[in-house]
Amino acid sequence: MPNSEAQVLDPAVVDQAIHWLVRLRFNPADEQTQRTFEHWLRQRPEHFLAWQRVEALGDDFAGVPPDLARHTLKGARSGMHRRQSLKLLGVLATVGGATWLGRDYTPLPALLAQQHSRTGEQRRFQLDDGSLIQLNSDSAVDSYFNEQRRLIVLRRGEIIVNTGADAGSAQPRPFWVQTRDAIISTQNARFLAYERDDGTLLAVQRGAVSVFPGSSQTLSVNNTVQAGNQRLFTSNGVREFKDNGLDVWSWSDGVISAHHMRLGDFIGALSRYRPGLLRCAEEVADLRVSGTFQLADTDQVLALVAQSLHLRIDYRTQYWVTLSAAS
């Protein structure tokens, strides 16, 4: 008879054990729940064995979102021994409780981040695995790599990630990006993540990216974003992102590119690249802007837009600028 370590278990039984572990670890268990669990445990020897293997993870579950844990284990079942699946979940746990979606969002982490950019600055750098990271204006990231995974923490702003081949590893490690609202994961992709006021924008140019919203209760195929698509996600879920005419990738080339974009929205986007207050009057906010403009000189951008739309620019100071209708 095979020993308990070598015995292959029915995946459905292991999934039941995973369900019980997540339920008992992450939800208060009343007496009825406990009795139901104990009854399940005694029904078959395979139940007890599956529970032993799953429970062996112990405190490695601490800090890992339960839906992400369950999803990872179920996804790993295909073509992988269950013991390897458990090891994979342990890898996720090495990220640490503090770094999962409860990270500190005071200004200090961004100021102390490993890589950051000033207002109006775009930066790019390469990581040890060959990945290329681009920072937009006023952005900050930290990176945490180990033998099992690659993790980028977006502390503030916007990044473009072009994942590297990870040639130095025996096999390519999973690539994770933690944002304010979710965890996103890929193996090989080029994508953009931008922390906006209304959520985090994810745009994918190459490959596919999976999104795990922070407080989502379900995971579905809708959480996988394919190349050519973009989504806006919050801690509660993922939804379509309405195109407002801005080319979200254009800043990586040092320009801001708009097509029939509301002036109010355009000014809001441009304001990210200069310090102080930049705004337009309500009576001109619905005018439309089209064109590609160099971000290196935002005063020139304002002059060109004002000329094409017959607007007046009022500089109260260099840091307080208003566009309004020409008299």
Results as ranks from 00 to 15, higher is better:
residue 25 R to N: 15
residue 101 L to T: 11
residue 120 G to V: 00
residue 187 Q to S: 14
residue 121 E to K: 01
residue 84 Q to D: 15
residue 321 V to M: 06
residue 284 V to Q: 08
residue 266 F to A: 04
residue 35 R to V: 14
residue 148 Q to N: 12
residue 282 E to A: 15
residue 124 R to A: 15
residue 257 S to G: 11
residue 22 V to H: 03
residue 101 L to P: 03
residue 111 L to G: 05
residue 327 S to D: 14
residue 40 W to C: 03
residue 209 V to E: 00
residue 302 L to I: 06
residue 224 T to N: 06
residue 234 T to C: 04
residue 299 D to H: 14
residue 170 A to N: 11
residue 120 G to I: 01
residue 72 T to P: 08
residue 113 A to W: 00
residue 27 N to V: 14
residue 227 A to K: 03
residue 272 R to S: 08
residue 168 G to H: 06
residue 21 L to E: 09
residue 124 R to P: 04
residue 193 A to P: 05
residue 106 T to K: 07
residue 63 G to Q: 03
residue 327 S to V: 12
residue 242 K to P: 06
residue 110 A to C: 03
residue 15 D to H: 09
residue 132 L to W: 02
residue 5 E to D: 12
residue 211 V to R: 01
residue 231 R to C: 05
residue 212 F to S: 13
residue 128 D to H: 10
residue 319 Y to F: 11
residue 15 D to L: 05
residue 77 R to H: 15
residue 41 L to A: 09
residue 76 A to L: 13
residue 25 R to L: 08
residue 138 D to Y: 06
residue 234 T to S: 11
residue 303 A to C: 11
residue 268 G to T: 06
residue 95 V to D: 04
residue 138 D to S: 04
residue 268 G to D: 11
residue 131 S to L: 10
residue 266 F to S: 04
residue 119 T to S: 01
residue 159 I to M: 11
residue 50 A to R: 01
residue 54 V to W: 03
residue 72 T to E: 14
residue 162 N to M: 05
residue 58 G to S: 06
residue 249 W to R: 08
residue 214 G to N: 12
residue 175 F to T: 01
residue 42 R to I: 08
residue 274 R to G: 01
residue 75 G to C: 10
residue 242 K to W: 08
residue 278 L to K: 03
residue 79 G to P: 04
residue 319 Y to E: 08
residue 70 R to D: 09
residue 272 R to D: 06
residue 31 E to V: 07
residue 2 P to N: 13
residue 57 L to F: 03
residue 281 A to F: 08
residue 212 F to K: 06
residue 91 V to G: 04
residue 194 Y to S: 09
residue 221 V to H: 11
residue 232 L to A: 09
residue 46 E to I: 01
residue 232 L to E: 10
residue 108 L to A: 12
residue 8 V to E: 14
residue 47 H to V: 13
residue 169 S to M: 02
residue 45 P to F: 07
residue 115 Q to K: 10
residue 96 G to L: 05
residue 323 L to V: 03
residue 33 T to E: 12
residue 320 W to R: 10
residue 268 G to H: 08
residue 107 P to H: 04
residue 125 F to I: 11
residue 24 L to E: 09
residue 181 D to E: 05
residue 137 S to V: 00
residue 223 N to T: 03
residue 141 V to T: 00
residue 228 G to Q: 10
residue 21 L to W: 10
residue 98 A to K: 14
residue 87 K to Y: 13
residue 147 E to S: 15
residue 217 Q to A: 14
residue 32 Q to I: 13
residue 65 P to V: 08
residue 40 W to I: 03
residue 324 S to A: 09
residue 172 P to T: 05
residue 214 G to Q: 07
residue 107 P to L: 02
residue 85 S to T: 06
residue 200 T to G: 02
residue 119 T to W: 06
residue 81 H to F: 07
residue 169 S to K: 14
residue 325 A to V: 11
residue 10 D to A: 12
residue 199 G to R: 00
residue 175 F to W: 03
residue 274 R to C: 02
residue 155 R to F: 05
residue 201 L to K: 02
residue 48 F to C: 13
residue 230 Q to F: 13
residue 326 A to V: 10
residue 124 R to Y: 08
residue 250 S to G: 02
residue 177 V to L: 07
residue 44 R to E: 07
residue 152 I to K: 02
residue 81 H to P: 14
residue 195 E to M: 11
residue 54 V to I: 09
residue 21 L to T: 04
